[in-house]
């Protein structure tokens, strides 16, 4: 027994500690075998799964930017069947909580995908990625219109019994309205934030640096925006627990998110910089709390001091 409690039950799931890995940056877990100890993590979130496999976008798909990176992978994934057949057996035994990130191209696809994943043994919870273009609404992201979002969450909620977290897009002028919509739709938790739409240009060739022109910005560059959004949702009194995401590199970053109101955090791009980043953050967090005489990580959640 350590003197510090890192365990936390939040969003319908009991975690060993509040450090998770973010979707799309941790594969399906197995890729990190031997590089980090999955059993030491609070949990992992899989790459986003769609009903059918997807092959992803044209290349180049990524480029580095100032203290961050842009990606437009195109949500390439193995599909529900491939996930169940090839990825889930390992995840069942991996010794950490498993949240499956999922999405669809239509309402029906979201519901279908969520319901099928819900039925799988070994899945502890679902995280819904709503940063996808809604074909029927001219390609606007599902997650940017509060009413559409509420209805989508409600429809998925009706089909999903396991904990359902909604991963909000930061590409909005009103994050609180989106959070409220998720609460109204019956979600169990919020993940804040997904990547921020951005662009990079090669001045020499006069071309965009990635094939789709626009991509999602991640990494330390986005941390202030992520913190702001977590805090705004918390301050507005939205009842759902928050998983904070965006540019987390070390235990101090994680603590900042807890203070802003997150009860768990997810490590994304930093796992590319250091595959053991999330493991290191768990170890450092424990040491840091012990040194500061904080006995329970839950004391930090929402403990921001604003005069």
């Amino acid at each position: 027994m350590s003197a510090v409690n890192l365990a936390i039950e939040t969003g319908g799931i009991a975690f060993r500690n509040p450090i998770l890995t973010a979707s799309g940056t941790f594969g399906y877990g197995r890729e990190f075998e031997g590089l980090t100890d999955l059993r030491a993590l609070g949990g992992l979130v899989t790459k986003g799964i769609s009903p059918k496999p997807r092959f992803g976008n044209a290349t180049p798909r990524i480029c580095e930017t100032a203290s961050g990176m842009l990606n437009s992978i195109g949500l390439e994934n193995v599909g529900v069947e491939g996930f169940e057949r090839d990825k889930l057996p390992y995840l069942r035994e991996c010794g950490t909580r498993v949240l499956v990130n999922f999405f669809g191209a239509t309402f029906d696809e979201y519901v279908d995908c969520g319901a099928r994943l819900d039925a799988l043994d070994g899945v502890d919870g679902l995280e819904m990625n709503v940063s996808c273009p809604n074909i029927k609404a001219g390609g606007i992201e599902f997650g940017t219109d509060p009413r559409v979002l509420r209805d989508l969450v409600r429809a998925c909620r009706a089909a999903i019994r396991k904990p359902l977290w909604i991963k909000l897009t930061p590409n909005t002028s009103d994050i609180v309205a989106l959070a409220v919509a998720c609460a109204e739709g019956g979600a169990d938790g919020l993940s804040i934030i997904n990547t921020i739409t951005g662009m990079a240009i090669d001045a020499r060739t006069r071309r965009p640096k990635i094939a789709t022109i626009f991509g999602g910005l991640s990494g330390p560059a986005i941390k202030p925006i992520a913190l702001r959004m977590v805090y705004q949702v918390r301050r507005a009194g939205v009842s759902l627990p928050i998983s904070g995401i965006g540019g987390i590199q070390d235990a101090t970053d994680a603590i900042e998110f807890f203070l802003a109101g997150a009860s768990t955090v997810q490590v994304g791009t930093q796992s590319f910089v250091d595959p053991d980043a999330s493991g290191r953050i768990v170890r450092d967090l424990e040491a840091r709390l012990a040194a500061d005489g904080i006995h329970d990580v839950r004391e930090l959640v929402g403990a921001l001091v604003v005069k």
């Binding site: 798909r61 580095e64 590319f272």
Partner: peptide, 23 residues
């Protein structure tokens, strides 16, 4: 060569089109 972030098949950034699979 391709642009790389992770080096371990996770970010899916270093894709190239292939005959045996789309990427």
């Amino acid at each position: 060569e391709e642009q790389m972030a992770c080096g371990i098949g996770v970010c899916l950034g270093c894709a190239i089109p292939a005959r045996s699979r789309p990427y």
